[in-house]
Amino acid sequence: MIEYGRRTRRLPAPPQVVWADLADPKREGVRAWLDLLPDEVEPDVLEPDPPTHLTWSSLWPSRPDDKVVLELVDRGGETALTFVLLSAGDSPDDSKAGHIRKRMNQLLFADLRYTYGQ
């Protein structure tokens, strides 16, 4: 697997809450957060290991062999969330890789974060 993106940021919720939201991102209710673009699909959870790790399938049908590894670390009641973008084949070109990294940042560190009130 080739890594083509990685980022860590803190979320103001404990790991078990963040993990549940990542494991079921389209859950209905007050904190629904996964708002996909037309070229994206809901990911499948491939490797669950609550509350510290899970792996998503690709959100991009044009990159079906990619995976998104999500690592969660407790930081005193908050969560340090890291996403790692992996490709089983060739890395995407710079433009596509930049788009995917930007979307992951938006989805996790803006859209999901705002559901926690910050």
Rank of each mutant, 00 (worst) to 15 (best):
R10V: 00
P12Y: 10
A13N: 05
A13T: 01
P14N: 07
P14K: 07
Q16R: 14
V17I: 12
V18Y: 06
A20K: 11
A20S: 11
D21Q: 09
D21H: 08
D24C: 13
P25M: 00
P25W: 06
R27S: 11
G29Y: 10
G29W: 03
G29T: 07
A32S: 15
A32E: 12
W33A: 12
W33N: 10
L34K: 10
D35A: 15
D35V: 13
L36C: 10
L37Y: 08
D39R: 14
V41A: 15
E42M: 08
E42A: 15
P43F: 04
D44I: 11
D44P: 08
D44K: 15
D44R: 15
V45W: 06
L46A: 08
L46F: 01
E47L: 10
E47K: 13
P50A: 11
P50I: 02
T52H: 15
T52R: 14
H53E: 12
H53G: 13
T55A: 12
W56P: 07
W56D: 13
L59F: 04
W60S: 02
W60N: 03
R63N: 08
R63W: 03
P64Q: 05
D65G: 14
D65H: 13
V68G: 08
E71A: 06
R75K: 14
G77K: 06
T79W: 03
A80C: 05
L81I: 03
T82R: 05
V84Q: 08
V84T: 14
L85V: 05
L86D: 03
S87N: 02
S87M: 03
G89E: 01
G89Y: 01
D90M: 03
D93V: 01
S95F: 01
S95I: 09
